[in-house]
């Protein structure tokens, strides 16, 4: 009987995610340490629908691009980009500007040794190791949950942030959930989904323009919906954390874009008279594409 109780206790300690700790410890020195620090697998036990949606999302594989591609490989190859170090062992957090959005926790919670390990993994095309680097629940629901830090303060290391307060969150580390005023606003997404060129780096970087397009094209055109209203539509009353499209799901992506982009085609066949006595047979095809998206297409 004693051994059964002991076995149960050991099992409880070994549950995936049990290592999840408050985010105020020392910086991670390895990919495994960083992955463990932000591991959110324990969230699944109560939020299985959300977790399973997230597992299919690009947030669960931010370093993998589309179809398993390792998009950062040039950053580890000498001479391939202005940031690329002479040798992977010389990589630093600063030589991976993509971390700003694709792995924001690396900018704040990782030592340069994580960048070295990542660069070596890219050279080795080690998808298993790189796949451990994810934008987990803790990234959006803690580190990115507060933008007005002078007004509101920094995110607390043992608090989760959501759309409402939960006084008693049944978790051994993150014991409470506080309301984040921006969690349901475009701003929370805009932190990573781009205004345009990132000029704070030693060399400019331009990735996504999506939030810039939302602010400067969609809003001026009279748009009123938030990112979340289109990309996190509730399923069974809970915000969809797939946050589509999932480009690895070809059929799903096609269906989404077919709904978003309409195509009208008008045709005309006639004999064009350019000069007297000479008719030229011609076909004219007029097309109109309309978009119901809240941003340019394509963008990211």
């Amino acid at each position: 009987m004693k051994s059964w109780i002991l076995g149960l206790a050991v099992l409880a300690v070994a549950l995936p995610g049990a290592a999840m700790a408050a985010l105020d410890g020392p910086k991670a020195k390895t990919i495994d340490e960083l992955a463990k620090m932000f591991d959110s697998s324990r969230c699944k036990s109560c939020h299985s629908q959300i977790y399973e949606q997230w597992e299919q999302s690009h947030h669960a594989r931010p370093m993998m691009g589309v179809a398993g591609g390792l998009k950062d490989t040039p950053l580890a190859m000498k001479g391939a980009t202005p940031f690329s170090p002479d040798d992977p062992s010389k990589a630093t957090i600063a030589t991976f500007p993509c971390f700003k959005c694709h792995l924001p926790q690396a900018m704040t919670h990782a030592e340069d040794s994580v960048a070295v390990e990542y660069a070596k993994a890219l050279v080795a095309q080690d998808r298993e190791k790189i796949g451990k680097l994810q934008i987990t629940c803790l990234v959006c629901h803690n580190t990115k949950a507060i933008v007005h830090r002078l007004s509101v303060g920094n995110p607390e290391p043992n608090v989760l942030y959501g759309s409402k307060d939960v006084a008693n969150h049944p978790d051994p580390v993150f014991k409470s959930v506080k309301r984040s005023d921006i969690m349901q606003q475009p701003l929370v997404c805009g932190q990573c989904h781009g205004l345009g060129p990132n000029l704070e780096f030693e060399n400019p970087v331009q990735c996504a323009n999506l939030y810039g397009s939302y602010l400067h094209a969609y809003i001026p055109a009279g748009g009123t919906q938030s990112c979340q209203e289109c990309h996190m539509k509730p399923i069974n009353g809970i915000a969809d954390h797939l946050i589509g499209p999932n480009f690895n799901d070809k059929e799903g992506t096609i269906a989404r874009y077919q709904k978003t982009l309409s195509l009208d085609v008008q045709t005309l066949g006639y004999e064009w008279l350019l000069q007297a006595g000479k008719h030229i047979p011609k076909v004219v095809v007029n097309t109109k594409i309309n978009s119901s998206a809240g941003h340019r297409i394509p963008d990211g």
């Binding site: 397009s213 094209a217 969609y218 055109a221 009279g222 748009g223 982009l261 007029n286 097309t287 109109k288 594409i289 309309n290 978009s291 119901s292 998206a293 809240g294 941003h295 340019r296 297409i297 394509p298 963008d299």
Partner: peptide, 9 residues
């Protein structure tokens, strides 16, 4: 690119 609320003709 295709812009929101602007028909591409």
């Amino acid at each position: 690119s295709i812009q929101p609320y602007r028909t591409k003709e």
